[in-house]
Design a binder for these strands. Structure first.
Lengths: 211, 211
DNA sequence: GTCTATAAACCGATAGAC
DNA sequence: GTCTATCGGTTTATAGAC
């Protein structure tokens, strides 16, 4: 088969995202991909290099929407309370649509797993992805609240992350102990609620659709 | 030594909370406890049974403050907006003081790790701890918003968990990439911010101390 | 109860036939 | 490129001396 490499990579992405690096064995990957165990080392050299490769795939997703892009379209966006609220809504929904509620959600699961259980890929992940996203969102907060403290900006900027982490990682549990339908209802609620709280905490007007 | 068992259990609690079941070896535990490797099987039978035992320790912590206890002291607490806000503040601060910011924080780390990476102890944990805490907090929400949806109550009730999870699990990273002082400032901010958002989302008056 | 030595299982990695 | 068989290492668990 020509795409053995691809089969292995797909299997690895799913397994690493679901169980983490330590709990996944090369034999599990080979079995799920329906290819021979030796192929892992033939194509990737080692289990660790295969893990690096799954990370490259997850990381190379498009960078989230930034406030700069919104300001390029409408430079006066942040001059009114309604505009500020709208900007928060756009950025937060983009974040969730990109990472949380789509077939690509394994990418964020992989990243969160790594955040909580660092492996050798960790510094790369922090420096090339997490730091940039974090700084962008904090910059935005400082546009809205110029004389805020760093800790205040950090907490606000990571608010979508805290919610997404919890519900992404606990998803299988919630589905098992409650139901899949309830999980989907939860997802819609989380996105709306997160956005509303981020807007309310700045004393900005909450758009009708978020009430 | 008479308390070999205790030494092993303490070492295991810390290690399992920090690295998770899979990454901790019996040799690490024995070394940290300064006892012989064989003692683990002498006292606990197996690595898995020792893990179960650490969970029993973590779970048997006092149950969080409930709204019933607050109402027992002041039955009229929820009749005014200020009283409602005060109740939220008390329950949230109790949650954080109990699980997040004290020497016992390994207990919650252990529980969150299990939530994200279920092992055979999982059903016991869910049924004996998480479900009860969750239901208690949701009941409280329904007292405040009688005709709310289940998903709405769930999201609100788990709001402190989402924040605590993220910052507990990412703590070592934040300390490494930023600083320990900043982490402590973050902790104070998270508690205050969480409480304020929970109050604001119900359109209740925010106490002066939380502004 | 404590310790050493070792069994039994599993893992990642590799050699070599095809 | 694919496959089998196996190496070398680590793990949990145990047997048996003290």
């Amino acid at each position: 088969m020509a795409d053995t490499r691809e089969l292995l990579l797909n299997a690895a992405c799913q397994l690493f995202a679901e169980y983490g690096f330590g709990k996944v064995t090369t034999r599990m990957i080979a079995k799920k991909a329906n290819v021979n165990l030796g192929s892992i080392h033939y194509y990737f050299g080692s289990k660790e290099e295969l893990y690096f490769e799954t990370f490259r795939t997850a990381i190379n997703a498009d960078f989230p929407l930034t406030i700069e892009k919104l300001l390029a379209v409408d430079p006066n966006l942040l001059t009114t309370p309604e505009g500020k609220a709208y900007a928060i809504q756009r950025l937060t929904y983009d974040y969730y649509n990109r990472h949380y509620n789509i077939p690509d959600k394994w990418k964020r699961q992989l990243i969160f797993r790594e955040l909580f259980n660092p492996s050798p890929v960790y510094p790369k992940l922090v420096n090339e992805v997490l730091k940039l996203e974090s700084e962008k969102m904090m910059e935005f907060y400082f546009m809205l609240v110029p004389n805020a403290s760093l800790a205040e900006a950090f907490v606000w900027a990571h608010y979508p992350d805290t919610q997404a982490t919890f519900y992404l990682m606990a998803e299988s549990t919630i589905i098992e102990y409650l139901s899949k339908d309830f999980m989907e209802e939860l997802n819609r609620n989380v996105i709306k609620n997160t956005t509303r709280m981020m807007i309310m905490s700045l004393d900005l007007p909450v758009p009708e659709l978020l009430k």
